[in-house]
Design a protein around this nucleic acid. Sequence first.
DNA 1: TAGTGGTCTAGACCACGAG
DNA 2: TCGTGGTCTAGACCACTAT
Lengths: 236, 236
Amino acid sequence: MAVAPAGYKAVKAAVLDRILRREWPPGALIPTEAALAREYGCARATANRALRELAATGFVERRRKAGTRVAERRLPGGRLMVPVVRLEVEASGRAYGYRLLERAAERADAALAAALGVAAGAALLRLRCLHLADGAPHQLESRWINLAAAPAAATEPFTALSPNEWLVREVPYTESEHRFGAAAATAEEAAALGLAPGAALFCVERRTWLGGDPVTLARLLHPAGYRLVCRDDWGR
Amino acid sequence: MAVAPAGYKAVKAAVLDRILRREWPPGALIPTEAALAREYGCARATANRALRELAATGFVERRRKAGTRVAERRLPGGRLMVPVVRLEVEASGRAYGYRLLERAAERADAALAAALGVAAGAALLRLRCLHLADGAPHQLESRWINLAAAPAAATEPFTALSPNEWLVREVPYTESEHRFGAAAATAEEAAALGLAPGAALFCVERRTWLGGDPVTLARLLHPAGYRLVCRDDWGR
DNA sequence: TAGTGGTCTAGACCACGAG
DNA sequence: TCGTGGTCTAGACCACTAT
C-alpha cells in the first residue's frame, strides 16, 4: 500500500486511521511489527515506535507473544497541567494579587501525619494564603510543607512569593496526586473568599513526593465560576 | 563513569538523578546526546530515548541546535483518566444503578451550536440520566450527542446502557477537553440528586471530537463528597 | 553555517508469557 | 517452546535554528 515516505508518524497515522475506521475493531489483533514494517516499507524499529506511541495514548494494548490489540475502550482523559496561579491569572489579562494569611511552624498530629504520609511529630510549615485576580478572591490556599523534604522553606517568609510558586521553583518532585471535587464553604473559608457560608467551592487537593518522601499537601479552593481545563490531543 | 549495563532506563534514571540533585540546576544545559552516549557507554539512540522521555514528562526541554535544558519549572500534573461511571462505582464495592431521565431529539439552537461546535439546526440527541451507587445518587449526567458524528445513537434507547458507556464502546474520539469546577445545585439538579437547592456540586464538562468533528458535550454533576483522582508517577 | 536533536535502518539478542 | 514485543547498536542523513 503506502510505499511513500513512511516515517513512524505516517505509520502511526495510518494504523490509527484503520482503527478509527473500524477496519480493526476494538479487541482485534493488529499485525505484528514485522508485518507492518513490511507493509509500509520501513524498519521494524519504525513500526515499533508507531505502535509504542499508540499504546502510550491508549489506542492499543501490547503484550509480548500475545501481540497488539485495539483497546476495548479508551478512557477519556488527557495530560493534566495544573497551572501556577499567578501565571494563570496574568494569562487571562487580569492583575494578580497575593496575600499571606498565616505562616506557622507545626508538629504533625496523627491526622496530619496520616494525610501527608510523615511520622507523627514531624516538623511542618503551615501556610494559608489568598490569591487575587483584579482584586477579587481567586484561590484560597491551605498548605503544609514537610520541612524534612524542603528545609529551605523554614527560612522563606512567603510574604511576596507564594508557596505555590516557591515550591515549583525550588523543590522538584517525582510523584504527585491530585484530587478534584466540590465542597461547601465553611464560615472561615467563605469570609476569606468573600462568599456566603455554604457557597459551592471547587477543591483541589494536591500531594507531591520526591523520591518517595512527602513534600507538600495543599488544599486549593476556588469560587464556583472557576474552571480548570484539561485538553487532550493525543490522537494527532 | 557508569560502565555497567546502561539501557535507556538507566541513562534516564541517571540523568534524572543529576537533575534532582541539582548537579544540573533548572535552566542548565545538559550534555548532548553524543556526550551522554560516550559517558554511559551506549549508542546515541539510547541516550536519545532517555532524553526524549524526560522531555515528554516535563523534566527537560529540547531544541535543535540549542541543546537540552533542565526545565525552569515543572508544572504539577499527571495523566488524567476519567473513569467509566459504572466501573468506578463497582470498583469501590458498591452496587451500580442507572436511570434514564430524559431522551429527546433536538435541533441545536444558537447557544448549543456554539457550545458543541456544530452548525445551528444540527440534529442532536439530548439525554439526562442518573447514576447511582448503592441506591444513592452518584452522578447526574446531561448530554448532547451530535447525530452527524454518531448516527447509531439515534436508534439506541439508552434505557439499560448509559450514554457514557455506550459512547466509550461505540464511538472513538481523537481529541477531548475537560473542564472541572464547582456549581451550586439548581432546584431541578438538587431534586434529582436528593440534595438541597444551592448545594455544592462538582462539575465536569466534557467535549470530545473525532477528527475535528464534535461528537458529544456532557455535563456531569457529583455531590460534594466525590473526588476525582489523578496520579502522576512520571518520575519513575 | 555548523551544531544539535530527529529520525531511520538492518541487524541482533533478549525477556516475557501464551499455548 | 517459541513468537512477539522490548531494546540496543553503529552508522547515516535530515531539519531546524542559534550564532
